[in-house]
Every structure is written in C-alpha cells, then in structure tokens.
Design a protein around this nucleic acid. Structure first.
Lengths: 186, 186
DNA sequence: AGAATTAAGTCAATATGGCTGACGTAAATT
DNA sequence: AATTTACGTCAGCCATATTGACTTAATTCT
C-alpha cells in the first residue's frame, strides 16, 4: 500500500517553462551550481527509503522504526545510550518508537551481564526476519543502480559517500559501518 | 546554531560489542547484505541536508521550506500543481509552507498570462539570494566529497543516483534535472 | 451557451516523529 | 558515602505530513 513514491504523480513540466538550455542568465555569477547532483540525490534517497516504507506501513511502523530496527539488527546487544548517539535523537523520541517495537515482538531487551542497569537491545527472530527483508529490498535497489557502471564504481561511491560525511564524524561512522572495503582516507 | 549533525553525539560503540570482524554467523544465508553502503548513504544524506538546515533555522524555516524554495528557484514560473507533483506532497502541506515563504518575501506569486487561474511561483530577489546560499553550501560539500576520486567519478555518481530512482520516474526526473551531462540510459 | 474540468485555496481533523525540561530509580564508580 | 551513569517517564510543544470535503474562478469541451 502507501503511495510513497511519487511515480505517477510527477507531471510534465509546466508549458510556460520549457527547459530552453542552460538558463545561465543568473545574476551574480553563480558558476555552475550542481543542481543536477543535488536533485538526483534528493530523488534517489527518496526512492531508496520508499521501498522499506511500504513494507513497514503494513506493520503500522514508520521510518523511525526502521532506523531503530536497522541499527539494533546490525549491533546486537547495543546499549540504549549508544543507539541514541547513533540516531542523534532524544531519549523520549527513541523511547516511544522502541516501546512499540518491543511490544510488537520485534526487539527484545535483556539486562546487561556486567552492568545490570543496561537494557541491551536485540532483534527477536521476527525482528531479524523483518530487518533482513527490508535490507534485501534496499540491496536490490543498490544492485540495480550499480548495473552498467565501470569497474571500481562501487568503491568510488563508497568513498564519495564517506567524504560527504562531516570529517570529524567519520572515524566513529567508520567503526560503526565496518565496511569490508578499505575506506581509510589516503 | 542548531546541533543538527550529531558530530559529538556519536559515542564509541558499546564495549560489549566490539567489531570482531565480519560477523557472518547469520541464520538463513544472507549473502553479504550491503550494510555499509546503506549506512553511508544514511549518514551522508543526513549531513548533506544538515548544512542548509542550520541556515534555515535562522529564518525559522525547515526542510520543507528548503525544498519548495529549491524547486521554485530552479523552475521560475512553475505552477502550484506541478510543484505538488514534484514534491509528492498534498496541497495542504504545500499551502502552509508556501504561504510562509510568500509572507516572508522569499517567494512571489504572479497570475498566469494565458491562464489567469494560475499563481505562478517565482523567487524574489531575497529568495534567490537565499536559494543560492543554500545551494553553495551543498556544492561545497559535494566538491569536498569528490576530492581524490578517480577521473570520471562524478559521472559515475550521477548515473548511480539516477539508477537508484524508480525506472518509471526517471524520464520525468531527467526533464526536471536537465543535467548538462549525458545521462541517457545506454 | 451550458456543462465539465482544472487551478488554486480552504476547513477540520489526525498522525508521526521530532523537541524541551524536569524528575525518579537503580546500579556502578569514585 | 557521594556522585555519576543508564534508563525510563511525565507533560507539553512543534513541524510536517496525511485525509476528505468543499469553494471559487477560469478554462475547455460539446
């Protein structure tokens, strides 16, 4: 369900507004702003997140649930505090979503062994299955996107994405992402 | 202002949960799910949108305003209906945001020449300046991300992003994006 | 000329996913 | 024993999206 992607919704451009070639009649001297890249990124990301959205809607879950599920699946036994740091949201925001996931039997909380204050997070069997499902959807889209690109493109894209990230956040993200590819800078 | 990026917020991974190398001990036979790409995309997009967010916050605007501003700047004289189609949101959602932008003197509405029902959208001088500012921020990040990548990488990334988009939406998006690069499939 | 369609705007209600500040409890650390 | 940490919770707020129904004016179709 859920017509998340705008597919059919995108109309032809207004007649009054035909392309007309590089409308480089701007004021100041905006030397070639990368509108195309910016827009491609926008639409690509939207469709990328749209696949999971459709599945999640069936469970009455949203994108917030997906993010939590994803990072718990990826980091079984993660502490709530660390998950908060990764997601960059507040305890309250996470709390609501997390509770729903626990109630739905998607995520399980276990007391820490060494530190009994912790409620370490794990996906249940159901949760794992759902996480894998969603990831496979995204995998398919990624694979489709890589078709026909020159050798080494995947590596290039990985580096590009990493370098899009704030430099001072990269070390932490690299730890988190632990790619099987070498993304060390230089 | 606005601590949009989580920079300092990302904590070290939980001690209980050190990398430990490809934890390929999964159940079914999930052959190498592309977690790293998925996560890099997530963080990259977050930082990418974070730059404009900070500036917009000063105007009490959000990301919704940015999207509207962007597409109006890019398609001066666009009809409301077409903008709705591009953004993939409802008239009501657009209405609120658009009104705020008009009230703030960022966007201007002019009656259509041929069709007086239309309220064609244009950025004002102020709006244009803001749009350019925001785009330059994103340009800088993109340029930084392309540093050190092999020749032709930008082209590769463009194609990658295009192919991430639903195939049936691509023709419309290509018209919209009108890249100065050749993105025709094949 | 009259009917149907389109462009734009509007009302009211609702959901989601964020936020803040304050506070409480149990467990660990100093 | 005092402090800090991990987690949760209360109450309220805000931004951005949704739906369905309805109005007005203008254009197009028959």
């Amino acid at each position: 369900m859920a017509d998340v992607n705008f597919k059919s919704a995108l109309p032809p451009l207004s007649r009054e507004n035909k392309p007309g070639q590089p409308d480089s009649g701007e004021a100041g001297g905006d030397d070639a702003l990368p509108y195309d890249l910016i827009e491609l990124l926008f639409f690509a990301y939207r469709d990328f997140t749209g696949d999971p959205d459709e599945v999640l809607a069936q469970y009455e879950f949203g994108r917030a649930h997906h993010r939590v599920l994803h990072f718990v699946e990826r980091n079984p036994g993660i502490m709530v505090t660390d998950l908060l740091g990764i997601l960059g949201i507040t305890k309250q925001s996470l709390g609501r979503v997390l509770k729903q996931l626990v109630d739905a039997g998607i995520i399980e909380q276990r007391e820490g062994n060494h530190d009994r204050r912790q409620r370490l997070l794990y996906t249940t069997e159901t949760g794992h299955a759902l996480a894998v499902d969603l990831t496979r959807l995204q995998q398919k889209r990624l694979e489709r996107a890589l078709i026909g690109l020159p050798d080494g493109s995947e590596e290039t894209i990985r580096r590009f994405l990493l370098q899009m990230i704030d430099p001072d956040a990269r070390p932490d993200i690299l730890k988190l992402v632990r790619s099987s590819f070498d993304l060390k800078e230089r």
